[in-house]
């Protein structure tokens, strides 16, 4: 665990969906001002963890403190206030409002949460769009954007209110190499320029290692590693190294838990 001040601090948190325990009593600190990548095999609840931090779902037990506020116990209005002030989230699909233009999408949170005059809103929006390199695309509708562009617009929208933390849900999935490079660069530069805390959920070990200050590895309901990428690759347990190096079989089994295969085949004969 790092010695730096934690922006998000999770203590003794468990969460289950149906009968499946997704998190089992986990502790986790996400340091302020750094890029933290949350990684792990599919289905370990990485996106669920983001939603828990964002307060969209509630844990069964435990605390999730964001900037000193325990998210699960906040009232609806307090939660909205916290999200408005200190959280931005970039969704996998971008989640742009399809009936608004690029400009209006970015302006949406600013117009709703401030009484700024329209000329100032315009300036702010253009600044954000310039930062993601899409100032020229302001009059396009979301349907006219490519996937990479849509994600950049969404990024501009999530930083529109200058949040203290941005949660990225799978920001690298489904992008061509150029867009991928742009996105990686943007996340890093935004993080440094605005001194944000960034949390990103990803499968992409290589990209994550280039920009993340810390990597948090999740598996089977718990945190199995939290360190700098270099340390994890070199000194992590066998399980950690299996993931970081992408080996198909190892401590994390290739097979979904099942009964004995030959037994299963024989059953069909009966």
């Amino acid at each position: 665990m790092s010695s730096e001040e934690a922006f998000v601090s999770i203590r003794g948190m468990s969460f289950s969906r149906g009968n499946r325990l997704i998190f089992n009593n986990i502790d986790l600190d996400i340091p302020r001002g750094k890029v933290t990548a949350i990684m792990g095999p599919s289905g370990t609840g990485k996106t669920t963890l983001l939603r828990l931090i964002g307060g969209q779902i509630l844990p069964d037990v435990g605390t999730i403190e964001v900037d000193g506020h325990n998210v699960p116990t906040l009232k609806r209005t307090q939660l909205f206030e916290l999200r408005k002030k200190s959280m931005g989230m970039l969704f996998q699909s971008g989640a742009l409002f399809t009936d608004l233009s690029v400009f209006d999408n970015v302006a949406f949170p600013i117009r709703l949460h401030s009484d700024l005059p329209e000329s100032m809103v315009r300036d702010l929006v253009l600044m954000k769009l310039e930062a993601v390199g899409l100032r020229g695309a302001r009059d396009l509708m979301p349907a006219e954007l490519s996937g990479g562009m849509a994600r950049r617009v969404a990024l501009a929208r999530s930083v529109a209110l200058d949040p203290e933390m941005i949660l990225y849900d799978e920001p690298f999935t489904g992008l061509d190499p150029i867009s991928l490079g742009i996105t990686v660069k943007l996340i890093k530069s935004l993080n440094d320029a605005l001194s944000l805390t960034s949390v990103l959920v990803t499968h992409d070990v290589e990209e994550a290692c280039t920009i993340a200050d810390y990597v948090c590895l999740l598996s089977e309901g718990g945190v199995i590693g939290f360190d700098t990428p270099e340390n994890l690759i070199e000194n992590g347990s066998e399980q950690v190294r299996q993931f970081m190096q992408g080996k198909p079989d190892g401590p994390v089994p290739f097979h979904f838990p099942a009964n004995d295969f030959s037994e299963d085949l024989l059953k069909g004969v009966k």
Binding site: L82, K85, G88, M89, S93, A95, T98, P109, H113
Partner: peptide, 12 residues
């Protein structure tokens, strides 16, 4: 398309 979630996360 997560637009509703996005709105919630904006505090709207």
């Amino acid at each position: 398309t997560e637009q509703i979630s996005a709105m919630e996360m904006m505090g709207v």
